[in-house]
């Protein structure tokens, strides 16, 4: 075992040269490459962090936008519901109003129809009553209804003369109103009767087709009537009463 100091010196130089060579061609390139890669990785990480922050901000903005849209949607929905409720109430009100109008019109129409029916019934009843009376008088006594009415009126006239004079005052114009023209014979009887009860009174005859069959005498402010109007009204009352009883029976 010996040491060659020249070789030792040479090896020492060789080692130092090797240190320099490896530093130049191994350590520095490798370490610089690692440093550069780490720097690039750090830069990429920083960029990724920036992107992550941007994405988080975008996500937060998106969530806020979603919340805002949801709130707007809820508000619009609520408004639409309120409008629909108002529209429904308005339609209901309009429908109720229309129904009320229709019901009122229907009631008016029904009342009008009832009135027309009553009028027809009244006329038909009167006509039937008069016709039956005429027929009964004609069949039983050979007299007309007008003759019997005039006879009855003239028989009552003397008893009522005082009252007529008091009611007529100074008036001496008597008006006899009938539905149909009276025969001359009956007119003459009336003239004589009135002249007897109320001397100096002039009689005038008027035809009124709307009047019930019979005779009406007006002298000044006084008026006497012998018509079938009251009988027809009585017949109407009987019919109305019968109809009411029928409706009550149907209702039960």
């Amino acid at each position: 075992m010996s040491i060659d100091w020249i070789t030792v010196a040479a090896q020492l130089v060789n080692f130092l040269v090797l240190v320099w060579l490896l530093k130049r061609f191994l350590y520095r390139p490798i370490l610089d490459g690692i440093d550069a890669r780490e720097a690039r990785i750090s830069e990429r990480m920083a960029q990724a962090e920036q992107v992550r922050k941007t994405a988080e901000a975008a996500g937060a903005e998106c969530r806020a936008e979603t919340e805002r849209l949801k709130a707007a949607r809820d508000e619009a929905l609520q408004q639409a519901r309120a409008e629909a409720a108002a529209e429904r109430d308005a339609l209901l009100m309009e429908t109720r109003e229309r129904l009320r109008h229709e019901r009122e019109a229907s009631e008016v129409e029904r009342a009008e129809e009832a009135r027309r029916y009553t009028d027809r019934l009244h006329r038909h009843g009167a006509a039937a009553l008069v016709s039956l009376t005429r027929k009964a008088l004609d069949d039983l006594s050979g007299e007309t209804l007008e003759e019997r009415i005039v006879a009855r009126a003239l028989s009552r006239l003397p008893g009522m003369a005082g009252d007529l004079k008091a009611a007529a005052g100074d008036s001496r114009d008597a008006v006899v109103t009938t539905r149909e023209p009276l025969p001359d014979e009956l007119c003459a009887q009336i003239d004589r009767a009135i002249d007897g009860a109320l001397p100096g009174t002039k009689v005038r005859y008027v035809i009124d087709e709307t009047q019930s069959p019979g005779l009406s005498l007006r002298l000044g402010g006084a008026q006497l009537g012998w018509t079938v109007e009251g009988y027809v009204d009585g017949l109407q009352a009987i019919l109305d009463d019968a109809a009411g009883q029928r409706r009550q029976t149907d209702a039960r």
Binding site: M1, W5, T7
Partner: peptide, 15 residues
């Protein structure tokens, strides 16, 4: 092997 030489190991130790 150079490390089988005492000169080399001495040089390295000297270093």
């Amino acid at each position: 092997s150079p490390t089988g030489s005492l000169s080399t190991t001495a040089a390295l130790a000297l270093a």
